[in-house]
Design a protein around this nucleic acid. Sequence first.
DNA 1: ATTATTTACGCAAACGATTGCGTTTCTTTT
DNA 2: AAAAGAAACGCAATCGTTTGCGTAAATAAT
Lengths: 334, 334
Amino acid sequence: MDQEKPIKLSDISKALNLSVSTISRALNDSYEIGEETKKLVQSYALKVNYRPNLIAQSLKEMNTRYIAIIVPEIANSFFAEIVNGVEYEANNKGYHVVIYQTHDSPEREIDNIRAIAHRKADGLLMSPSTNQIQINEIMKHLGVNLPVVYFDRVPSDNYCHKVVCDNYQAAYEATSWLIKQGKRKIAHMSGPSGISISIERQAGYSAALLDAGISVDPGLIRYSKFLASEVMENFKFLEENYQPDAYFASSDRLSLYCYEAVQLLPEPRASKVKIVGFTNTNIAHLLRPKLNAIVQPAFEMGKVAAEMLLNTIAKKNKNIEYGFIKLPAILKNI
Amino acid sequence: MDQEKPIKLSDISKALNLSVSTISRALNDSYEIGEETKKLVQSYALKVNYRPNLIAQSLKEMNTRYIAIIVPEIANSFFAEIVNGVEYEANNKGYHVVIYQTHDSPEREIDNIRAIAHRKADGLLMSPSTNQIQINEIMKHLGVNLPVVYFDRVPSDNYCHKVVCDNYQAAYEATSWLIKQGKRKIAHMSGPSGISISIERQAGYSAALLDAGISVDPGLIRYSKFLASEVMENFKFLEENYQPDAYFASSDRLSLYCYEAVQLLPEPRASKVKIVGFTNTNIAHLLRPKLNAIVQPAFEMGKVAAEMLLNTIAKKNKNIEYGFIKLPAILKNI
DNA sequence: ATTATTTACGCAAACGATTGCGTTTCTTTT
DNA sequence: AAAAGAAACGCAATCGTTTGCGTAAATAAT
């Protein structure tokens, strides 16, 4: 049906006995071209199904209409939903999304950033793994000079674009709920110390305790990477030394590991221990006992972050005013 | 630290008083360039951190070193693992992976294919949604002229590259296991009729029944799209008309919907009804009661499919011998 | 010593699109 | 009627690389 080789401007040029520049301008609806000529060219282009070569356009305009996003794992519903939000917004504006995974390796993160810059994506969305304070420096050092929007885990300084959910509020609510259930010895399974989400969620947790007249026991707060093994170790430690009557887990994976650990406890303790976590897992509702969890507005976060990025790309370094958007998260499954 | 504008060949050319072509050849280690010149150029390029402009290379060589993959949803562990396998293989060979989602919409599938061709990806991996018999025709009609490898759901003809798991065998084993548990009235929740996975899995199901001396009742076989609503309807129908003592669900999502439906049954029936499905969900082990399921070698499938695709890309239309790879799947959680 | 061959490099044309500027023709102004 | 302006189009450079071909100098062959 269609031609073997894609049609280019010069093909149309020859067929219509017009110069290549006229064809180009006619298709771009330039004022320099007469109306009849435009009609002629445009209808012919339509007839032969002309599509501009995007690579050539990229070379000329020095952009790719690709935006990149770096996530730990797409097999994580939270990040998958973020990606969906990004995709939704980007596709609406003619951009495509390239997903990069770090699998929680900082080396891969660096490699990805480097590759993204090399491939000349027009912008980058990321949730930096560690060293968040230095991430901006790292980017500079890598010679990365693209618009960046951070989401979820974000740097602490204000010279960058950020999209997060209200971690403090969510953690406060979750902890308060546990307290309302009569729990007082509430352990906190936190992510790595030093990253934004850990800090904010811990602050919400502590505030809820204090507001309820419960003192914060630092021994009940345990940090771990997003690894089952580390969570299990911390869990074991807490069970042996504290026997908490509830757990508040600070992220999607931590919640599931923690949930699993609780299920493995002997009865009657297993059913006594309450647990609240974060999760966007789409089959969370199938779990028995229920996993009470904070659900983040992941799709919305991705959408908003993409909007922010595309706006920044559009104004091309002019008017660099950094944005910071915080979305509410809700406690579900209760 | 690094320069504002990226270094290009002409910059090196000026700095070293050599022609651009010499620089290019020296960096590409051409035999036409003297050893000392090569050393000079290469060390200088290293010093100024030269990186070739990939867009320019793309334009010249008419390739992008991007491969595309179309999946229904990345928020589905099965597809996420496939993507991981693809990514692993592709990155090892200098390719990047662009993921496109259809969200089960055939229109989006077409749009994606068109966009991928337009963006000039070097190859495409896909699991066509419907109309598999015509998918090759559709691709031709769209003027798509890229190497394609199909996985999971595949066209029936042999003039294409295909990677699947042994659906027949897996379904046979799953059904046999149910029979071994004493079940005889086994319903089959199938995907849409007409697509390869439905056909093969149903064949395995039927064969297992017949081999056990159980006749196949067509009324026990229900087809549905991958929608909770359709599965629920079929489930209701079966419960009202047949009261099966077991369910065999034919895909990841169907399994979870079916599992959910069974859990909603009143006792004691809920605990009587056995269910076997397909799933690659990473938290399947948290479900109580257990979800007995076939786990597909998704990562491996993706890896193999990517290998196949990259090989095809490498030999550029020469030697088109189509491959068909079938990997074993295993029954887990029993 | 003359011719043939190799070595090592430069020139310029691609790849496909965009765009500043020049040129022609036609219309308008004074 | 002469000058000025506008309208409609073409030429050629450009984006950054790659590569066929030409050419000078150096080496080898006769």
